[in-house]
Design a binder for these strands. Structure first.
Length: 397
RNA sequence: GGUGGGGUACCCAAGCGGCCAACGGGGGCAGACUGUAAAUCUGCUGGCGCAGCCUUCGGGGGUUCGAAUCCUCCCCCCACCA
């Protein structure tokens, strides 16, 4: 493959790819690049936002480059004392290892696990002594640290920044140095860290890495970036129906973005998507949902998810499968029933929902929270938009 | 180290002795409308044995018939000065 074509593949969908000349020089040597990807050991639940990065790593892997996953167990076990969240748990070694395992298992759905390396950064970072750390810290200045936009924002808004937080980018940079990274891949929010890493590598007399950043996928709210902490994410591990439903719930405006970043559509295809979006937004989004489920599961799963979705939300019928609850012959209070089934967090919440006419039995609104429910035959209880229970009369033992 | 300001529910933010389970906004949930989209309107958003009760306003102690509100000690944050 010629260099131009090779570069073309690498560049697809990237925001930053720099410095380009350095990348060309590295490629020209004909050696596989060491590509670094940082993994957060506290977040084993991968989502579509991660997928954007993994998809790019897959490209690089297919081009013959070496993917190295760095599990940040060092910082995870030290814990981050910033913020008032004193309860934030410090992960134990076993937890980190377990998280890394499930993480890697999910990664393997995109990358070839046999060609992907995993390294734990505590194995070298924990060996640094004070002298080493001072030396590392002299690779960068406070002024330049404060250039990072979230530091800058916090500085301006008088939110504390702790010294060790300045250290983290440096440690990440040290990781790059340690594995002799040629390139680091991540979201645009990582750009600063990646650039610091270049300085660190130079500081140690190593050729700096090339940085490759990808757009941040917007979450299901259509506003903020997809993130577990915002609760706006679609996880690799979401069951097909859930995944399908979540895609359907994204705002129209971001549909083309999903086509672009998740399905990897090129500009020509995207133009077509936009045209269809104007014409038939619902079906265009449905196709997106279908394709995404297919990507993570299978064609059959996608078809099933679609059918189920249409059944429940378009035809407004009960789902084909739902949790079953037995109702004793003497009946059971409706609030207790909803609460015991785990549909709500508290009985007060159950009462509230009833008051708001959000609870239906076989389509009939239940208004009385003191109701003792008795049933003769199988019934369907609907709570809110998407929670269903199948009620079964319990027979005498 | 000094001086001043501040810590209120998921987040921001009012309240500054009883009318406070705590204004308002955001977020979330629910209902109507719909394409589980957007927009809009409405309601809710600590818990329970729910017309009542219990727990909450950084933590402990105190004053008072009564405290988020006053006093006191402690912890934490911010700004300026050093």
């Amino acid at each position: 493959m010629d260099l131009r074509h090779h570069l073309e593949i690498i560049r697809f969908k990237t925001v930053d790819l720099l410095p380009l000349e350095e990348l060309e020089a590295k490629l020209r040597r004909g050696r596989p690049l060491v590509v670094k990807y940082g993994a957060d050991p506290s977040r084993p639940d991968l989502h579509l936002g991660h997928y954007v990065n993994l998809r790019k790593l897959k490209d690089l892997q297919d081009l013959g480059h070496r993917i190295v996953f760095i599990v940040g167990d060092f910082t995870a076990t030290i814990g981050d004392p910033s913020g008032r969240d004193t309860t934030r748990p410090r992960l134990s070694e076993e937890e980190v290892r377990e998280n890394a395992r499930t993480y890697f298992e999910q990664v393997s759905r995109v990358l070839d696990p046999h060609k992907t390396e995993v390294q734990f950064n505590a194995s070298w970072l924990s060996k640094l002594c004070a002298r080493d750390i001072v030396h590392l810290a002299s690779a960068y200045t406070v002024a330049r640290m404060l250039e990072r936009d979230d530091f800058e924002k916090r500085y301006r808004s008088n939110t504390p920044i702790f010294i060790h937080e300045f250290l983290y980018p440096l440690f990440q940079g040290y990781d790059s140095y340690h594995i002799q990274a040629d390139m680091e891949v991540g979201g645009t929010d990582q750009k600063f860290n990646f650039l610091v890493a270049r300085e660190v590598q130079k500081h140690y007399g190593q050729e700096p890495q090339v940085i490759l950043t990808l757009p941040l996928l917007v979450g299901t709210d259509g506003v903020r970036k997809m993130s577990k902490s915002y609760g706006n994410y679609i996880a690799f591990n979401d069951p097909p129906a859930e995944m399908y439903g979540k895609v359907m719930s994204i705002p129209d405006a971001v549909v083309p973005e999903y086509y672009s970043l998740v399905l990897y559509y090129d500009d020509r295809q995207l133009e077509e998507v936009r045209r269809q979006m104007a014409e038939d937004p619902r079906d265009t989004k449905a196709r997106l949902a279908y394709e995404i489920v297919k990507l993570f599961y299978s064609e059959a799963a996608a078809r099933a998810a679609e059918e189920e979705f249409n059944r429940v939300f378009r035809a407004r019928q009960a789902p084909s499968a739902m949790p079953e609850v037995r109702v004793p012959p003497e009946g059971k209070n409706i609030v207790d029933l909803i609460y015991d089934a785990g549909l709500v967090a508290s009985k007060s919440e159950a009462r509230r929902l009833i008051k708001q006419r959000a609870v239906r039995l076989n389509g009939e609104v239940i208004e009385d929270p003191t109701l003792v429910l008795r049933i003769q035959e199988e019934s369907v209880l609907k709570v809110g938009k998407r929670k269903f229970l199948k009620l079964v009369p319990a027979r005498e033992p």
